[in-house]
Write a protein that binds this DNA or RNA. Structure first.
Lengths: 142, 142
DNA sequence: ATACTTGCAAATCGTTTGCAATACC
DNA sequence: GGTATTGCAAACGATTTGCAAGTAT
């Protein structure tokens, strides 16, 4: 993995989330949150694993899954399910929605403000809204 | 399977969808579309298989999957993905959205009119909106 | 020191596939 | 009869687990 300055920021981020800054978690956090060319990544476990391996980070797939879920639980990531059997992890945890390109399987963020969601039905008794997902599924033009 | 009058309506429905009204497809269609107590079912392949078996309908799980997908392609069903690794098939194919009870894994329809979806972003070039899914994820009350 | 993490390999889950046997038109 | 459909069992991909070995505080 391309080592450079101390991971102080990432270490803080992990500690703040209650996660021990282990070698693997740091490397994955670096790949996820400090990817060259900005943020907002939508990545699967397999993809992240491939990236890690390609970057000479030794991590097992099991640890990738563990870490992704831990990051998600800690609020550092958000899981997006578009198709059965494929989970994307989104580095953008602010309120937003998604375009889903059905042909390529690609996901693209839509800023929260761009979708006006009013006149929602009241949630049933004894429940609270945990999250609202809007997925706009796209196909090739007609 | 509780046999009674001829399946004429179901036969028509299948034929109209370009599907041969085989014994299995008829039985599944009956379970899906003529369930006692109204429509709007959200069912998984495994659940439908269990229902069929419980109703003494001999169908293999493979055929359940085949049929569900054929019905979906034909527009008789709609597939809804809420969690990775679990597909629900919805007998309501009109425009609508869903409440998802994260605790029970249950899905509930929200009539299309109850959600005001305006000011949507314009889809990227060379694409058209195939469908918009709104899923309101619910947890137990605070 | 000790509790938390990791890696591995096997297990599991939902779903799909290949293909011979069978049912529909 | 000829094609579509089915069942079975094996194959599959994604994800999870159990547990021994390693690591952070």
């Amino acid at each position: 993995m391309s080592k450079d300055r101390p991971y102080s920021a990432l270490v803080q981020r992990l500690k703040g989330a209650g996660l021990r800054p282990t070698r693997q978690r740091l490397a994955l956090a670096k790949l996820l949150f400090e990817a060259p060319g900005g943020c907002d990544r939508h990545i699967t476990a397999e993809q992240l694993h491939a990236e890690a391996v390609g970057d000479s980070v030794r991590v097992s797939l099991a640890t990738i899954y563990n870490s992704l879920h831990q990051f998600t639980t800690a609020g550092l990531l958000r899981e997006v399910v578009v198709e059965s059997g494929r989970s994307y992890f989104d580095t953008n945890v602010s309120e937003h929605h998604h375009f889903y390109f059905e042909n390529s399987g690609r996901l693209q963020d839509i800023p929260g403000e761009l979708v006006q969601l009013d006149r929602l039905p009241t949630p049933p008794d004894d429940t609270r809204v945990a999250r609202i997902d809007v997925i706009i599924r796209l196909q090739d033009a007609e």
